[in-house]
Design a protein around this nucleic acid. Sequence first.
DNA 1: AAGTTAGCACTACACCCGGAGTGGTATCAA
DNA 2: TTGATACCACTCCGGGTGTAGTGCTAACTT
Lengths: 195, 195
Amino acid sequence: MARRNEERRAALLDAAIEVLAAEGARGLTFRAVDQRAAVPAGTASNYFANRDELLTQAGGRVYERLGPGEAVLAAGFDGPRDRARLTELMHDLVARVTAFPTGFLALLELRLESTRRPELREVLTARIRADLEGNLAYHESAGLPGDRSTVLLLYLALNWLVLEQLTLPELLPDQQRHGLVTTLVERLLDAGPQA
Amino acid sequence: MARRNEERRAALLDAAIEVLAAEGARGLTFRAVDQRAAVPAGTASNYFANRDELLTQAGGRVYERLGPGEAVLAAGFDGPRDRARLTELMHDLVARVTAFPTGFLALLELRLESTRRPELREVLTARIRADLEGNLAYHESAGLPGDRSTVLLLYLALNWLVLEQLTLPELLPDQQRHGLVTTLVERLLDAGPQA
DNA sequence: AAGTTAGCACTACACCCGGAGTGGTATCAA
DNA sequence: TTGATACCACTCCGGGTGTAGTGCTAACTT
C-alpha cells in the first residue's frame, strides 16, 4: 500500500539523512526514520517498499538539497576570473558543504554501504559523476583559471579536507585548514594551465 | 574473565578489521568477530570487556599492520631526491594502501563511528596525528622536495583518491587516477618550495 | 447541502532475528 | 593434581518487519 504524499515523503528522506549521519548505514531502519521524522511507527514502511529503496532515495535527496548551492555558484558568473576569485569560490564551497554536515556524512555512509550493494553503487556513481561533470563544465564555461586536472585535484583534496574537519576536527586547526585551501589553489594554478 | 593469549587476541582484532570493512561499524559485534575469526561463539566476549575496547583496539591494529609500510619507505633513503623520486614514492604509497583495502575501509568506518564516541575520536586523532607527523618528519629528513604544505596536500588528495577507488571504482578509470597522482606531485612541487 | 467514497494517518499485533552474557565442562600444561 | 583456557549451551533481551484493521478527512456526486 504505497502512500503518495510527496511532502511527507521528502520529510522522511530528510529524516533518513539525519539517521544515516547519526547512526550509520546499519542504523538506518524504518523505525529509526519514523522516530526521527516524528511520525507514527510504521509510516516509513508504508512509503518505501524496502531498505534499498530508502537508501538510494536518501542519496538522491542529499543532492537535491545540495543542488541549490550550484545555483548560488552560477550567480558568481560575474566578477574577475583570476586566481583570487577561484580561491574565494573554493573557500565558499568548503563552507557550504561543511554547513550541511549530515549530508556529507550521510553520503560517506552511503559510499561505504555501496561496497555491499552493487545497485546502490551504480546510483551513487552516476550521481557523483554528474556532479563532477557539472563542476567541470561550470569551471570551463565560467572561464575560471585552470584545466580539468585542476578541478579534479581540487575535488580530491577539498573532499578529504572536509572529511577531516567533520570526523577528526582536532587534527588540523581551523586556521591551518583555511591556509591549505589557499595554498592548494595557488600551487595547482601556478603550475597548471600549461599542462 | 580476561584471556591473555596475545596471538589469539591479534587474530580477533584482524577479524574485527574485516568485519568493520565488510559490515560497517554497527555490524561489529562480538559474535560477528567470532565467526570471522573462526573461533567458537563467545570467545571475543572473553577477550574484550565491551564494544568500545574492541573498536579502539581494532583501530590500533590497523596501524600496527600498516606500520611496516613506513619501514619500507625508510628503506628508500637512497636514490635521488628529485621530483621523479617523490612521484614514484607516492605511486607506491597509493598502491600499498590500496593493497590493504579492508584496513582503509575499517579506518573510515572508525572515523564515522568516532563522530558518536568521543573516546574513540581521541584515540584516532592521536594515532593519525602521529602518522602524519611521521610522514612530515620522514619527508624532511629524507631531503625530498617540497615543504610541509606539500606533504599535507598530498595527504589530503591521495586519501580521497584511494577512497574513490575503493568505494566507487567506476567513477575514475585506473589510468586517470594514475595520471592524477603524477600531475598532483608535479604541480605541488613546481609552485611549492618557495612558499 | 447531505451522502458517499476513497485515500491516508495511525495503531496494534504477531513473528522473527540476532546478540549479550554467563555458567558449566572438557582439555591441556605445569 | 591443579590451574587456566578453550569451547559449548542456554537464557534473556531488544529491536525491527510487515501487515491487518480502524477511524478520520476531504473531495466528489447528485
